[in-house]
Design a protein around this nucleic acid. Sequence first.
DNA 1: TGAATAGGTTAAAGATTGTTAACTGTTGTT
DNA 2: AACAACAGTTAACAATCTTTAACCTATTCA
Lengths: 238, 238
Amino acid sequence: MNTKIKVLIAEDDPFIGMITKECFETRGFEVSLCEDGNKALKCYLEFKPDICILDVMMPLKDGFTLATDIRTIDQTIPILFLTAKSLKEDVIKGFNIGADDYVKKPFSVEELIARVDAILRRSGAGKSEEGKQSVFQIGDLSFDSDFHILKTNKEEIKLTDKESAILAELCRNQNQVTDRRSLLFKVWGDDSFFNSRSLDVYITKLRKYLKNDLNIELVTIRSKGFKLWTGNKKAFDQ
Amino acid sequence: MNTKIKVLIAEDDPFIGMITKECFETRGFEVSLCEDGNKALKCYLEFKPDICILDVMMPLKDGFTLATDIRTIDQTIPILFLTAKSLKEDVIKGFNIGADDYVKKPFSVEELIARVDAILRRSGAGKSEEGKQSVFQIGDLSFDSDFHILKTNKEEIKLTDKESAILAELCRNQNQVTDRRSLLFKVWGDDSFFNSRSLDVYITKLRKYLKNDLNIELVTIRSKGFKLWTGNKKAFDQ
DNA sequence: TGAATAGGTTAAAGATTGTTAACTGTTGTT
DNA sequence: AACAACAGTTAACAATCTTTAACCTATTCA
């Protein structure tokens, strides 16, 4: 049986294309590599990939146009863009077209593969994995706890490990109190006096990241912990 | 249908136990928490967990004894130890009993969950995942590229991200030439002059780690790349 | 042989992340 | 009001990882 996952890679640089193809193949994927947008569209129809990785800058047909074409045929297939620089407009345009993720060039193939794995894991979820949420919507922001990325409508902030661990925990208890001591244990494995102060330092940092979104508030519940208060009010709010 | 993964946690500290239990439950696991070794053994028989997390220090029956008991019944169930300190004897003892991994106290629950995910991913592998090797055997050493850990028979070295990415790539091409330029692209996404020299610095570092094992040699293939030469000679060697 | 190129090695510089300390403010209790 | 406990904030500090520079050796080829 051949159950390999099929990846379409549209990339005009032959060397980058080849390396990337080879890397995916080494990890058990089946790859079709196309050097321009027209070939990629043709290939999409014949090869029937499970996921598309599209370079934005490409001859004949750019990545965005290609993605739009693909989206008219299939609204659900995961699409990941390779963007030349971190052009904000590109990023926004990409998400509007319905990209699932994007990676900035130059990218390490390690990272690209990690992202593809994540996309596939998520899209193939809903089985025994309901509890395992890794992307959170908080107000107008979205937070990807796997990749430690907090996205606003304007920019994208890379969080550190600890920032991310703490925010993830707060998100899991959105609109509920997150107990201070539990939080210390979950993140540091320990709740000594000094860790405790570190936590406060991180809370300050997180508040700075979140302050632009007026729907979000990271409230202190004195001698209990913190509560991440968001726009998505639920029944148990009070 | 209830396809939740069942986790047995044997931990005598009630607070740590509770936090850990809760964390696993939040992520969709079914958990049974036992406060001593005897209860844990009983629970093992009734609850039939998919994985066991055992504290080494426990009243009535310590983790090692408990693991030995479990191993007489089931030789394959994944076992993960929680060790009080990083006592080397404990670690070695643990692996001799047949542990799959261990985590040092104090541990962050984040980390513990990551390890459990990894163990389950691997033990449940062999499906459409053949290509995705993450633990490599090189000579007498073993290298876990997920957790960046290189284990010798004596010690355990934590590699940095870059060290690990490079070594992983060399391992995938064990006894074959790893092209220098590909390597630069895979790890840095780019092969400028300066990256190139960084690679050489890392090769020096890796050679230091590997020098104790006389079966392993990290050979330079001038103007091509490097070859990780190991004891496991294969047909295509020359 | 000798110049050019590739790679080896070490140390210093730079960047990032996390911890600690010191000072400030706030809340609740007596 | 006065004190203690808790939390907020900032900056200094420390640790770690990566890059860069400098100098050196080995190989290749004209």
